[in-house]
């Protein structure tokens, strides 16, 4: 295999190519978000603004759901933070590979960091082939996700405005199904499974709390349960159990 064939252009295009399966997966998600948000009372420019500026699918869905329930802005922002704080994990994992980049690169690549792009580029950075342009690969992956998400939101907004009462089609449920598809594959360790069960049960228990506060309480219960279980398993069976966070440098 040649090691001299890396250019900015080839890295950029490979980044796009390798992200395509995830782009296709995001298409219905973006479309449904656009349609749902306008159905829930967010304006068309506001819905596009969420995709262009926030650019974080699951939190955008949650915000749209909270808007429909008349939740206050501060609580929506706080909930968004809780949901999106996982990106700190991705950034911390990629940071050692991005040390040489200027803020001019770090800001856009940070802004565009999604579950999908992280999943793709973490493998590219790890491959030791001497390429000096891996950040161009990262850029390609980021840009294609961003453009796709924005366009799908736009199409969804138009559909949501032209087709009356899309909610009767169960669009809210499409969000739940999407989330199910995202978390089920992660439930393969016992602490993760416990997190899901405890969070789900607590969410039922605390459902009556005002302003969807039950969501935050339930999430904290789930995180605590998973954290405690993992810590406990690690102390009882240190060799067989888990799992330093992926990519974390000691």
């Amino acid at each position: 295999m040649m090691s001299t064939e890396f250019s900015r252009r080839s890295e950029f295009l490979n980044g796009i190519r390798d992200t395509m399966p995830l782009v296709i997966g995001a298409i219905p998600f973006g479309f449904i978000f656009g349609a749902l948000a306008v159905n829930n009372g967010i304006s068309a420019p506001g819905t596009l603004g969420l995709s262009l500026f926030v650019f974080a699918g699951s939190s955008q869905f949650i915000a749209a759901g909270l808007v429909a329930q008349g939740t206050g802005v501060l609580l929506i922002i706080f909930t968004t933070f809780i949901v999106n704080v996982r990106h700190a994990l991705y950034s911390a994992t990629l940071a050692p590979h991005m040390k040489h980049l200027s803020q001019r690169w770090l800001f856009p690549l940070g802004f565009w960091l999604t579950d999908e792009t992280f999943a793709v580029v973490v493998g590219r950075y790890a491959r030791a082939d001497g390429s000096r342009y891996k950040h161009w690969y990262h850029l390609g992956s980021s840009v294609i996700m961003y453009v796709n998400w924005s366009l799908c939101t736009l199409v969804g907004v138009v559909a949501g405005q032209t087709i009356p009462d899309l909610s009767a089609w169960g669009l809210n449920f499409a969000m739940d199904v999407t989330f199910l598809g995202m978390i089920m594959p992660q439930l393969r360790t016992r602490p993760m499974l416990l997190t899901a069960v405890v969070a789900g049960m607590s969410a039922l228990l605390f459902y009556g709390l005002p302003n969807k506060l039950g969501l935050i309480v339930a999430a904290l219960c789930g995180i605590s349960a998973g954290f405690a279980a993992e810590t406990w398993l690690a102390t009882t069976k240190p060799t067989t159990t888990t799992a330093p966070p992926e990519g974390q440098k000691e």
């Binding site: 978390i183 439930l187 997190t195 995180i223």
Partner: peptide
Amino acid sequence: FVPVAVLSAI
């Protein structure tokens, strides 16, 4: 544990 906890609670 945050993503799984939050999404399950939803």
